[in-house]
Structure formats: C-alpha cells, structure tokens
Deep mutational scan, measured.
Amino acid sequence: MGFKLLSKLLVYLTASIMAIASPLAFSVDSSGEYPTVSEIPVGEVRLYQIADGVWSHIATQSFDGAVYPSNGLIVRDGDELLLIDTAWGAKNTAALLAEIEKQIGLPVTRAVSTHFHDDRVGGVDVLRAAGVATYASPSTRRLAEVEGNEIPTHSLEGLSSSGDAVRFGPVELFYPGAAHSTDNLIVYVPSASVLYGGCAIYELSRTSAGNVADADLAEWPTSIERIQQHYPEAQFVIPGHGLPGGLDLLKHTTNVVKAHTNRSVVE
C-alpha cells in the first residue's frame, strides 16, 4: 500500500471513529477524501466538511520552486461564519470567499490569524475590503508590521502568557507558548472536538522541520505538551499544512522538532 493511500485511509478511519463516538456532533463529509496538494491548482481553494458547521479550507501556493498546501478553518456561528487564517495570499483568499459563498452561503463576518507569517495573514486586506472584521493577538499584529505583512485590524486580548485561553464565538483560542513562531495560536472547536494546530503542528508525513527561522526550538516541545494537557479530548487535529489526523500529530511534531534540534547540535 502506497504512503499517500495509507495517509488518506488514516484520515478516513479517524473521521469514521469520530462519527461513531459522537453521532450528534459529527456529520463528516462523505463526498470524498481530504484534498491534497496535487489536486488543488494554485489560485483555487477546496472546502472539506469535518463536522456539522465545521470545515477546513485548503489552498496551495508556490514557494521556492515548489507547491505547498495550506489549511485553515471555518466555523459556523449562528447565521454567520468565523474564518481562521487566510488562504495564503490575496488571490487565494478572494477564491476562498467565493467558494464559501458557493458552498455554504453564509457571510464571513470575523477572521482570526493564528500567527504573523504570510500563509496566515496574506489576504487580510481582501477580507477587510469584503467587510470582514480581522483579528490577531497584539504580538501577531506587531510582528506582521515588522515583517511588512498585512496586519489584522483588531487585537485579541488575554493571550499574552503561555497557557492563556479565551473564548471567541464558537471557538476557544489558546496560546501554548512559542513553537513554530513566538505568537502562534491554537484554535479548538469544543462542539466538535476539532483542534486546529496551525503551523505549530505537523502532518504525519512530514519528517523535516522546514521553516524554523522564527521558531523557538527549545520551547516548542513544552508548548505541545500544554496543548495535549489542555485538549486531551480532541479527536480531529488539523495541521497548518497537509493531512489531518488525531492527537498523534502532536507527538510526531515533537519528535521531528527534537530530531532537528539534535542534528543542529551535532553539526
């Protein structure tokens, strides 16, 4: 069995187990497998329904001669939608809004960016022009300005110390501490036991640490421990890039980060 097929099978099995364990909360999309990078042309966006009122959005972007996937989250909030992270750029984010209108038909009224990198804030200006209120932590807003990236308009308070959590509509926002970046936030959907790890969490097929220019490698494993301790009931975990899975993604990420750190020390 090929690795790609095995990865998709694991996603399907995880979703099936969740649907059985929580039949009222989960209505997993039966329309197909989780979209992969090879299936999404740059400039297009796919939506994948995880649970009743919960979707991931998947886009792709060219970077350094390669094409990478990027995940975000959409959560229903009454007759409105909360968006977590842009679709990595203005063109993708405009396509995301169009796809949401086509498939869901509810307005996106608020959006949260989970850290300051372009795959999370690139497209904020498109959201703002569409009347979406954009939010991020003060740290993310400051770092985005320093980096020359787009800056969300509103500040999220109460997320300055490791372990801080605040309720934001249908989700809980959690600051686990520094990891992929010093400002990275985690998003949890309690009604569906869905954990969105953003770039602080890796997919299972990833074996290298990737972009760690703004990471705190020493603190990252401790931050992941905080996530595990705060959300032990999480059933569906979405990484910032690639295929979702279960809580095993947290341990896998820790292993990859520690291996990278150990290699760096040896070198």
Rank of each mutant, 00 (worst) to 15 (best):
F174R: 13
D183M: 00
H260N: 06
A95D: 06
L106Y: 08
I201E: 00
A15D: 07
G32R: 09
A234S: 08
G177T: 00
I224R: 01
A179C: 03
V75S: 10
D118C: 14
H252D: 09
T153K: 14
Y188Q: 09
N71Y: 01
I227Q: 01
L159F: 07
E203C: 02
G105N: 15
A165F: 12
S31H: 04
H180Q: 00
T60W: 04
G197K: 00
L159Q: 02
A51Y: 15
S70F: 03
H117S: 00
S113H: 15
K4V: 05
T86E: 01
T182A: 05
Y68N: 10
G197E: 00
G131V: 07
D79C: 12
T109M: 13
N149I: 05
A136I: 11
V189M: 03
I201R: 01
R206G: 06
V126T: 14
V28P: 07
S22W: 10
Y202T: 02
G53I: 05
T134L: 11
L82E: 08
L243H: 15
I238S: 07
F174W: 04
I104S: 03
Y175Q: 03
T153N: 02
Y231G: 01
A209T: 05
T253C: 02
I100C: 04
D248R: 07
L13E: 13
G2L: 13
Q61D: 04
S70G: 10
S155R: 09
D52F: 02
N149R: 11
L96Y: 02
L10W: 11
E99I: 07
H260Y: 04
P232K: 15
V257G: 06
L106P: 04
Y12G: 08
V237H: 03
D64R: 08
Y34Q: 07
L47R: 02
E172T: 11
R141P: 01
H57L: 03
G123K: 01
N255G: 13
V54K: 01
V112Y: 15
D85W: 00
L24C: 06
N211P: 06
E233L: 11
A179W: 01
R206C: 13
V124E: 05
V146D: 12
Y175K: 06
K258H: 12
R120K: 09
G163F: 03
E145T: 08
S139W: 10
P138S: 14
A133E: 04
Y135H: 04
I20S: 07
Y196L: 03
L47W: 02
D119C: 01
V42W: 13
D119N: 01
L195R: 00
S205C: 07
Q103H: 10
I186K: 00
R142Y: 14
T86M: 07
S191Y: 15
Y68F: 14
T93A: 07
H115R: 00
R206T: 05
G240H: 03
A111C: 09
D119W: 00
Y48R: 06
N211G: 08
H117C: 04
P170N: 15
E99P: 02
G123V: 00
E44S: 10
D79G: 08
R110N: 15
N262P: 09
S139K: 11
G123Y: 01
L97N: 02
V121N: 15
I20P: 05
V11F: 11
A178S: 04
G240F: 02
F63I: 08
A21Q: 11
R263Y: 02
H115M: 00
V11Q: 12
D125F: 08
L6N: 03
L250C: 07
